[in-house]
């Protein structure tokens, strides 16, 4: 995996877009792995009864996609310090989702970078705006 350093990044850098789309099997596995029995995540008829268009993607799964988006870009020797997201709209099974992000602030003394992130659906609507704070290694110091 690629490793970013505090020297390798600049304000305005874009993270490579992460594409995600969860099918029924993945949502089932996520319900199982998180011991979440809520029917809106696997029972289509029940999800429709609650007014949803289809089976709903778990909010915390999208949260974990956000952390993966950041840690895949930052590299294994970086440390995620904070992630903050808002649930603005739901995602449904099979929907093509994209994660976009950029570097908005760099603190060279603390070796931290603030990122602005968005999860968007295929219509470009923002489902989850987010921010992340990450600590990066330095090329000039032994970690």
């Amino acid at each position: 995996m690629k490793q970013q350093t505090i020297e390798s990044i600049s304000v305005g850098d874009q993270l490579p877009v992460l594409h995600k789309s969860a099918d029924e099997a993945q949502l089932f596995l996520y319900s199982a792995a998180s011991f979440n029995p809520h029917r809106i995540h696997y029972d289509r008829a029940y999800a429709e009864f609650e007014g949803h268009t289809d089976i709903i993607v778990h909010g915390p799964l999208q949260g974990s996609w956000l952390t993966q988006f950041v840690t895949d870009w930052a590299g294994p020797a970086s440390r995620l310090l904070n992630i903050t997201w808002q649930n603005r709209a739901s995602a449904i099974v099979g929907e093509n989702l994209e994660f976009h992000g950029s570097v908005t602030e760099i603190n060279e003394t603390e070796r931290t970078a603030l990122l602005s992130l968005e999860e968007r659906n295929e219509n470009g609507a923002i489902l989850m705006p987010a921010t992340a704070l990450i600590k990066l290694p330095s090329e000039n110091k032994v970690q």
């Binding site: 995996m1 995600k20 993945q26 596995l29 996520y30 199982a32 792995a33 998180s34 799964l61 974990s64 996609w65 952390t67 993966q68 840690t71 895949d72 294994p76």
Partner: peptide, 20 residues
């Protein structure tokens, strides 16, 4: 590891002690 795989996050720091 089941959680990481359900997310689709195969970062080696969750699966490989030497990588971690």
């Amino acid at each position: 590891q089941r959680y990481a795989l359900a997310v689709g996050d195969e970062n080696p720091i969750y699966f490989d002690e030497s990588a971690a």
